[in-house]
C-alpha cells in the first residue's frame, strides 16, 4: 500500500473515532441534562417535590416563630401539587429561556386571608400594617427561593439556552460529517473499520476515567441538599452512560475486528 494511503487510512479512522465520541457525548447530554422530561422524572424519583414542600413548610414555620402569629396562618396556603406545578413551570422557564416568574397570587391571597382570620379571632389591634405586609413578602420569598433555588439559575438561563442551540447544531453537523466520512471510507475501500468503534470505546473509557478520578461529583453540595442529591444522580447517570456506551462500542469494534480478520484470512487462503 502506498505511504500516503496508509497515512490517510490512519487519519480518517482517527478522525471518525473522534467524531464518534463527540456524537456519543452529545447524544448522552441531549437525553439527560438537556432533556426537560428526564430532569422532571429524576426529580420525581428522588421525591424532590415532596422534599421541597417539607423544606418550605419548615422554613416558614421557623420564620413565623418570632412574629407573634401562630403556625395556623400557614394552614392550607399551598399543597404538594402546587409545589410540583411551580417547580415544573420553573424548569419550563429555564428550558424555554423566557423571563416569566412563578405565580404567587394564590398563596399570597391565602396567607392574607389566614392572617385576617387570626387577627379577628385573637382580637389583635394592628398598629403597623407595613409589618404585616413585610411578613407576607418574606413568606412568599421563602416559597420562591425554595422553588427557584435562590435565583441561582437566573444568570445562566441565557447560557443554558445557547448551549442547547449549540448542541443541536453540533449534532446535525457531526451526523453529516459522519455520513460523509463513512462514504469516503467506503469509496476508498479502507479496511478494518472495526478499529473506529474500538478506538472510540477506549477514548470514552479514558474520559470516564478522567472524570471519575479528578472530579468528586458524588459529594457535590450546592444550594440545598435536595437539589444536590438530584444533581449528583444526574451526573452519576451521565458518567455511567459514558461507561456503557464505551463498553458497547468496544464490543462492537472487537466483533468487527474479528470478523474482518477472518474475512481477510479467508481471502488469503
Amino acid at each position: 500500500m502506498n505511504k500516503w494511503k496508509i497515512i490517510l487510512d490512519y487519519f480518517l479512522k482517527f478522525l471518525t473515532a473522534l467524531i464518534l465520541i463527540f456524537l456519543t457525548l452529545i447524544i448522552i447530554f441531549k437525553f439527560t441534562i438537556f432533556n426537560k422530561n428526564y430532569i422532571k422524572n429524576n426529580l420525581k424519583e428522588n421525591n424532590y417535590y415532596e422534599k421541597v414542600y417539607d423544606s418550605i413548610k419548615e422554613n416558614m414555620e421557623n420564620y413565623i416563630i418570632s412574629s407573634g402569629f401562630s403556625e395556623n396562618i400557614l394552614d392550607n396556603i399551598y399543597t404538594n401539587k402546587d409545589v410540583e406545578i411551580a417547580i415544573n413551570n420553573y424548569i419550563d422557564i429555564i428550558f424555554s429561556n423566557k423571563k416569566d416568574k412563578i405565580d404567587l397570587s394564590k398563596i399570597e391571597n391565602k396567607i392574607n386571608s389566614n392572617i385576617d382570620e387570626y387577627i379577628k379571632d385573637q382580637e389583635i389591634k394592628i398598629l403597623d400594617k407595613d409589618s404585616i405586609t413585610s411578613l407576607v413578602d418574606d413568606l412568599l420569598k421563602i416559597y420562591t427561593n425554595e422553588i427557584e433555588l435562590y435565583n441561582m439559575f437566573d444568570n445562566y438561563i441565557n447560557l443554558f439556552s445557547k448551549l442547547q442551540t449549540i448542541l443541536n447544531i453540533a449534532l446535525i453537523c457531526l451526523l453529516i460529517i459522519t455520513i460523509i466520512l463513512i462514504i469516503v471510507l467506503i469509496k476508498l475501500k479502507i479496511q478494518n473499520l472495526g478499529i473506529i468503534p474500538f478506538t472510540s470505546s477506549l477514548m470514552l473509557l479514558y474520559i470516564r476515567f478522567l472524570i471519575y478520578n479528578n472530579i468528586d461529583y458524588k459529594n457535590i453540595l450546592i444550594i440545598t441538599d435536595n437539589f444536590s442529591n438530584c444533581l449528583v444522580q444526574i451526573v452519576t447517570k451521565i458518567v455511567d452512560l459514558i461507561l456503557i456506551c464505551g463498553i458497547i462500542l468496544g464490543v462492537m469494534g472487537l466483533i468487527a475486528i474479528i470478523l474482518d480478520s477472518r474475512k481477510k484470512n479467508k481471502k488469503k487462503e
Partner: peptide
C-alpha cells in the same frame, strides 16, 4: 491481525 488492530486502537488512544 486482531492484535495489530487493537494495537492501532491503543496507538490512537
Amino acid at each position: 491481525e486482531i492484535f495489530t488492530s487493537v494495537g492501532i486502537s491503543f496507538f490512537f488512544l
